[in-house]
């Protein structure tokens, strides 16, 4: 299978779906000649022209609001916000309009739109350009939240997201853009709401998503040499959450660690733990459930502080060792 980057996988999913479906279009800032802040839409203007690669003023509220309006009347917009942080300027159309239209109108409206959100820290972009805000987005019924961890998943999940009849927030981690992975040529989809076991194990379940999947996998591989068997469960879709996959895995391993980059308080690790503690999996636990998350701090600029603010491989490893040896 050919190897392509996460960035190319997202690009290809958009391009291929735009060729197949004329209702799909991309809307956002600097997505034309500039190719988008992270180069994801490079070359698309040349193929599709300025009508479908719709460059906007710096107006996030209007970008997401217009996407929602267009979606309600039959289009399938993909809105690109330059940084996930800027979704905070567009929460009104996302949360009060797009998320609720279908329900409020008695099931008669559909809002098939995707909002692409480059998130996460690691680039020295500091507090207003490095956040992981997925937990906030997950709080609103009517919205789906997807966060791929590999190029393969990114392509398959984005195709599903574009075809989904609901507003989908598609969270892309900035540090993953350059990461390569095997991706088959042509069309395939990955259903939303289905988790994926990225590493099979029997001693402990690590429930995670996005970039933390990559970090957890590195740790799982390392620890397997010592006979510590880590199961890495990649949620892929955060809402709706694949609760059954979590329950099944914890029943098998008897231990749970949830890892995410988003800050701890109100973060979705708590949601995963609630799923376990209120299901039959609770009876299978051999140790307290633990979470390893971003610290409750704005992302600092300095590189050492920045790294200290979010889980690193060493932290994941230490936490797993503690849980499996009952030393927490």
């Amino acid at each position: 299978m050919p190897e392509i980057t996460y960035r190319e996988a997202i690009h290809d999913a958009m391009v291929e779906e735009m060729r197949r479906d004329e209702n799909v279009f991309l809307i956002g800032e600097d997505i034309g000649t500039y190719g988008g802040a992270f180069g994801v839409s490079a070359g698309m203007l040349a193929e599709f022209g300025p009508d479908r690669i719709r460059e906007t003023p710096i107006s996030e509220l209007a970008i997401v609001g217009a996407a929602a309006g267009a979606a309600m009347v039959g289009m399938k917009p993909i809105a690109e916000l330059m940084f996930m942080d800027f979704v905070l300027l567009a929460l009104e159309p996302l949360m009060n309009q797009a998320a609720k239209a279908r329900y409020m109108f008695g099931g008669k409206a559909t809002v098939p739109m995707v909002v692409r959100l480059p998130g996460g820290s690691g680039t020295g972009a500091a507090a207003q350009h490095s956040q992981s805000l997925e937990s906030i987005l997950m709080h609103i019924p009517g919205i789906k939240v997807v966060a791929p961890s590999t190029a393969y998943d990114a392509k398959g999940l984005l195709l599903s997201a574009i075809r989904d009849p609901n507003p989908v927030c598609f969270v892309e981690h900035k540090l993953l853009y350059k990461v390569k992975g095997e991706v088959p040529e042509g069309e395939y989809t990955i259903p939303l709401g289905v988790a994926d076991i990225k590493h099979v194990g029997s001693d402990i379940t690590v429930v995670t998503s996005g970039i933390m999947v990559q970090k957890s996998l590195a740790v799982a591989k390392k620890l397997s040499q010592e006979g510590i068997s880590v199961e890495v469960l990649d949620l892929r879709t955060l809402r709706p959450m694949d609760t059954q996959a979590i329950i099944n895995s914890v029943k098998k391993t008897g231990r749970l660690l949830v890892v995410h980059e988003a800050v701890q308080t109100g973060g979705w690790a708590g949601e995963v733990m609630a799923v376990v503690s209120s299901s039959e999996a609770f009876d299978y636990l051999d140790a307290p459930m633990r979470r390893l998350t971003g610290k409750d701090v704005p992302i600092p600029y300095n590189r050492f502080l920045e790294a200290a603010a979010v889980p690193q491989e060493d932290d994941i490893e230490a936490e797993i060792r503690a849980i499996v040896s009952n030393k927490y």
Binding site: I58, F86, A125, A127, Q128, H129, P298, Y301, L305
Partner: peptide, 27 residues
Amino acid sequence: YCRGRGGSMHIADVTANNLGANGIVGG
């Protein structure tokens, strides 16, 4: 100015009534 927490985009000197550069366009 911000003890390394802010960087180029968030330089501020609040004691001098300089309430800071902003990373959010329009902030």
